[in-house]
């Protein structure tokens, strides 16, 4: 077993420190070491998007990032989307639009959708579908997810100054 490395990063606005082996993925570190279990493991090879988190402002599959690579990085997970006990509009729209059934893919979709709307506040249906294609959902048929993202876009536009 290789020696553990000390890593310091910012997670949902707070400084975190952890020890990890080089072979530990960021997903393992988040879930098992830091016990932030919001990001889910669906395939462990980058094909389902359930483990999506923000790494330095970009959405990534945390199963394909090594924990040691997070040194100095800024991370955001589903646990950091709501603030001050208020759901983010994207979370609220997922609930109001019934955009989840079993809920296992939801954290990944929320992170990807939030990142999309931050990059493009007014995406077309095609762009939403293109950008969310790395996130698999087996329950909903995607209809209500796409509509929830469209609804959240409108909410965020209304809220924008």
């Amino acid at each position: 077993m290789s020696k553990k490395t000390h890593v310091t990063a910012t997670l949902n606005g707070e400084t975190v420190e952890f020890l990890c082996e080089p072979r530990h993925s960021l997903l393992e570190v988040l879930r098992d070491t830091l016990q932030m279990t919001g990001a889910k493991e669906g395939c462990n090879n980058g094909n389902c998007g359930a483990c999506t988190v923000m790494l330095n402002g970009r959405p990534v599959n945390s199963c394909l990032v090594l924990g040691v690579e997070a040194e100095g990085a800024t991370l955001e997970t589903v646990e950091g989307i709501a603030s001050h006990a208020h759901l983010h509009p994207i979370q609220q729209c997922f609930l109001e639009g019934a955009a989840l059934q079993c809920g296992i893919c939801t954290p990944g979709f929320l992170i990807a959708a939030k990142a999309l709307l931050e990059q493009n506040p007014n995406p077309s249906e095609h762009e939403i579908r293109f950008k969310l294609a790395n996130n698999l959902c087996r329950c909903t048929g995607y209809d209500k997810i796409v509509k929830a993202v469209q609804a959240a876009a409108l909410e965020l536009q209304k809220a924008a100054p």
Binding site: G46, T52, P59, V60, N61, L132, A133, N134
Partner: peptide, 9 residues
């Protein structure tokens, strides 16, 4: 190349 998340890396 992969999806959006893959393209970040």
């Amino acid at each position: 190349v992969g999806g959006w998340q893959i393209q970040s890396r």
